[in-house]
């Protein structure tokens, strides 16, 4: 049989899916063991027991000075910033995307501008944001918004333009005004794409969040990682990285689940 026709069974598929994770873990454990055998004080690849200790210290033991549970305090600070910026980006992107996608006049006005804006490297603007908006929350949220909104606007505008012309004609023959067509035909078919779009922008959003926190902050997951970097606390860094990854994966799944449960007709498509 040809390789392209060989399909794994469910169990085999599951095993294959887990395999890379196990391989990475084993490789890490071997590397760590080898380094610790050479030097028990090695900080670069700490052993698994050290991780358990780090998790316990960060998540369950209150800090002696502030009484905070660092992991949860950092998580809530970071998710707050992430949530605020994703919310702002969503509203702007949806509005602009629909206007640019539906109305030739808005397209003529804004499409070239957005195309240029989306090429500005957001991290290069970070100093400007810090200077103009100070070191507080605003500049961090703005960085993420500036980082992800232009791409979302373009993506949604493309999605709106991709709607078959026949549908818009049909809606007009049913007596729809621009406003009604926007609300009843375009919006419901664009919202599922918004979820997918948000999902794809989660990665960049986390990138900008951690960059902003690393430079100026007093809490947050990115702040902690860059703080403990000074003490070579690889145990804390790895724990935080794994935690951020887990959060991102969960957000991914949640967005997919939300999309399919709100818009059942998008099931089985990438919207």
């Amino acid at each position: 049989m040809r390789w392209i026709n060989l399909k794994p069974s469910r169990t085999t598929g599951l095993i294959l899916a887990i395999l890379p994770f196990v391989v990475v873990l084993i490789a890490y454990a071997m590397g760590s063991a080898a380094r610790l055998a050479d030097n028990p004080g090695d900080k670069l690849l700490p052993g698994l027991a050290t991780f358990a200790d780090a998790i316990n210290r960060m998540a369950f033991v209150p800090d002696q000075r502030t009484g905070e549970l660092f992991l949860w305090a950092d998580t809530s600070a970071s998710l707050g910033r992430l949530g605020a910026s994703l919310g702002i980006a969503t509203v702007i992107a949806l509005l602009t995307g629909m206007l640019v996608g539906m109305f030739p006049y808005f397209r003529a006005l804004l499409a070239p501008f957005i195309a240029v804006i989306s090429m500005v490297p957001p991290l290069a603007l970070l100093p400007v944001l810090f200077i103009v908006m100070g070191l507080g929350e605003t500049s961090k949220i703005m960085l993420i918004v500036i980082g992800i909104t232009p791409i979302m606007m373009r993506d949604l505008a493309f999605k709106v333009r991709d709607l078959p012309h026949e549908q818009l004609v049909k809606a007009q023959t049913l007596g729809g005004s621009s406003w009604q067509i926007a609300m009843r035909v375009v919006l419901p078919q664009t919202l599922p794409r918004l979820f997918t779009c948000l999902k794809l922008q989660l990665g960049p959003a986390w990138l900008f969040l951690i960059a902003a926190e690393a430079i100026s902050s007093d809490s947050g997951l990115g702040y902690r990682i860059f703080l403990v970097r000074r003490y070579l606390s690889m145990d804390v860094i790895f724990t935080y990285v794994a935690w951020i990854t887990l959060l991102a994966v969960l957000m991914n799944l949640a967005l997919d689940w939300l999309r399919v449960s709100i818009f059942p007709w998008t099931k089985g498509s990438a919207a």
Partner: peptide, 19 residues
Amino acid sequence: AEPGPDRGVVFQRYSVFPH
């Protein structure tokens, strides 16, 4: 030069709303 409710239309594809 604008479709209106006095003229109905059925195309070969994409005539109905998938949502």
